[in-house]
């Protein structure tokens, strides 16, 4: 049989998953909807106090239950970044943007999000960025309620 006779067809795997989130993630998402960013108090392997943002239900390293939730800053430091010149389907922005790990003021860990910086040249590790929120009416309790981060100087 010639290769051309082998049958091929498109196949779609699609489902509208709806997930229950439990108390910790639920509180974080509720906070986002209300315009606040929450972290979870925890302790690292050496017993030093930490704040996990976004809050996982269990400490990322020690696996202990996390403690109380606390509000952290809406600005922070980029710990590392990458520049996406061609955004892909369903990604947070539809123009070139930076993926970042951003450590918010008051947090110990960094969260994955994006920075709308205009150009690669505007990005550097250690730069300060601040959250740009979607309008309150559009926020539903998901990470994209923060539309993106922007360089702090550009949004004082």
């Amino acid at each position: 049989m010639a290769d051309s006779e082998v049958l091929r067809a498109p196949h779609v795997l699609e489902y509208p998953y709806v997930r229950s989130v439990g108390p910790v993630i639920g509180a974080f998402l509720t906070g986002l909807r209300d315009g606040r960013i929450l972290g979870a108090q925890s302790r690292d392997a050496q017993g030093k106090a930490t704040v996990i943002v976004p809050p996982t239900e269990y400490d990322p390293v020690t696996s202990a239950d996390v403690g109380a939730l606390v509000e952290v800053g809406q600005s922070g430091v980029v710990t590392t970044w990458s520049w996406a010149p061609e955004p892909k389907k369903d990604q947070p922005l539809d123009r070139p943007f930076a993926w970042v790990l951003v450590r918010l003021d008051g947090a110990t860990t960094a969260m994955l999000h994006v920075v709308d910086a205009g150009s690669l040249d505007a990005m550097s590790s250690g730069m300060r960025v601040t959250a740009r929120w979607r309008p309150a009416a559009e926020r539903v309790g998901r990470v994209q309620d923060i539309e993106c981060f922007v360089p702090e100087a550009a949004n004082p």
């Binding site: 779609v12 699609e14 489902y15 998953y17 997930r19 509720t30 909807r33 309790g141």
Partner: peptide, 21 residues
């Protein structure tokens, strides 16, 4: 408002299926 308890994460993946010989 009521606390957020559910998160919708729709997933769509496209494939090119090969039946084989």
């Amino acid at each position: 408002e009521a606390p957020v308890t559910m998160l919708a994460t729709p997933i769509r993946l496209d494939y090119q299926y090969t039946a084989g010989l």
